[in-house]
Design a protein around this nucleic acid. Structure first.
Lengths: 260, 260
DNA sequence: TCTAGCAACTGGCTCAAGCCAGATGCTTGA
DNA sequence: TCAAGCATCTGGCTTGAGCCAGTTGCTAGA
């Protein structure tokens, strides 16, 4: 009999992957369920182990499934998203004395932890230099790298860039930046955050990012290039946020400009 | 000699991938350049073809290279991003008579084309029902599916959901919706877009999305769940945007709430 | 001069076999 | 009773072989 349907002329690995995908989507294989082992799948479908393995890899690439060395392959449980709202920059939130991340974590009932692996004077990346209005061929910025954890799970990597001439010799060069964090110190310097510009993109993580964020295959990252502008429209801080996309989302709520 | 450094105890496929990655990042392999063939790589590194192949796959997963059947593997050229600014909702732009997408395309010197594969009455997905304030167990919405192209390249898939009781019998059920598009008709119905809520996440595409958007392996999608609120704070339209992340970015510019 | 067709490249996919390493639970000896 | 250790699961990774299907450019014949 000639096989019919869309799955007919597909290679075996795809056919197996499609079959499993359907089982996951229809609930035959529930969230958290264990798939048959690679060897069993191969036997069931009359294919080589490598072919079954390839099918599993395809599913993992789509983020549907995750393999655990030694124990099996499991249907991934959708994680509740850790949402970063656009009001995280709101000055009203300063009153709480919490930084935006701690605030967001608290709101979602998680324990926040922040590591500061490095604070160094550096030459800025081209995109940062452009937005901060500093020379790219000069050690014109201070780069603060932060790693953020919620309930001990790594959630995001943040690289903050500040003008060296402003940060030099201030608390901005220290791990502990005092009340209201770096934004408090920047306000002391006369910068009131008045507008923000967030440029958002998505991509696959670099191997380093995957390691820090403990990312499984098939999980992309959200990158936000954030610029803070003060009351005079001067950019005074640029940060690059790298979020794991399987646990993080962004939320922007904004008014629509009316016609006159 | 015992091999030293981080690459020492790594499996061969990773070692090869790392090596190629370094060559790409240092410019030894420039953008658009052709990598050695799988068979040549295998020979160079003294590995099996499958191992070299696995290394190439790792790079493709990271979005660094792209394979062309029959001709070779090439270093991917970073595409200029098609940015969707938050002012795309601005009512001022209505004056141009262009829909947000056409406007954005024109701004970037590209030719926009929009296909409308289907307009149907449906039961809304749970997340849409919740945001639009309609029952999820009823055919309470009209679903308009649109595919957007820029210079004939597919850029985004948009699913727009409107209340069935409002759309029934109006131009909202037609392909041609008249002046100012659906937002014009919704305004006729008394809904002035006053606030928007965009929920952003990133993930790997489904096979269907990958097909429509002609996505190469290693390219994630940006998903925006958009809600339009009118002058009374009533949600009157929900859209799900699925953007290809290799050519698309989002831009949000917004004022920061001040403390009193 | 042109073109049809072929050879020799490319990646796509599979197979069958093997060794390694993590996880797990049973068994056996203290 | 308890714990050490081992058998036997699991996925991780490699090998080397083979066939298929796009692509490309040369070559021979009209």
């Amino acid at each position: 009999m000639t096989p019919s349907g869309a799955s007919a002329q597909q290679p075996p690995s795809r056919r197996i992957a499609e079959d499993l995908r359907r089982q996951i989507e229809t609930g035959t294989l529930r969230s958290g369920a264990k798939l048959p082992s690679e060897r069993k799948l191969a036997e069931q479908y009359g294919a080589a182990r490598n072919t079954a393995r390839e099918a599993v890899r395809l599913l993992a690439e789509q983020g549907l499934v995750t393999a655990k060395h030694g124990s099996g392959v499991f249907v991934r449980t959708p994680q509740r998203l850790f949402r970063f709202g656009s009001d995280r920059y709101s000055l009203k939130n300063r009153e709480t004395g919490l930084t935006p991340f701690r605030l967001e974590a608290k709101r979602q009932g998680k324990v926040a932890r922040i590591e500061v692996p490095s604070i160094e004077r550096e030459r800025p990346p081209a995109d940062v230099a452009e937005r901060l209005g500093v020379p790219a061929d000069d050690e014109s910025v201070v780069h603060r790298e932060n790693h953020y954890f919620a309930d001990d799970e790594p959630v995001q990597i943040v690289s903050t860039y500040l003008r060296w001439d402003e940060a030099q010799g201030t608390l901005l060069m220290q791990r502990k930046t005092g009340k209201d964090g770096i934004y408090g110190r920047l306000q002391d310097l006369g910068h009131v955050m008045t507008r923000v510009r967030d440029e958002i993109s998505a991509r696959m993580p670099t191997p380093e990012e995957a390691a820090v964020l403990e990312l499984l295959p098939g999980v992309p990252v959200l990158e936000v290039l954030h610029t803070s502008l003060d009351q005079d429209g001067v950019p005074f801080e640029v940060s690059r946020y790298v979020h794991r996309a399987d646990q993080t989302g962004l939320l922007y709520e904004l008014p629509v400009e009316q016609e006159d």
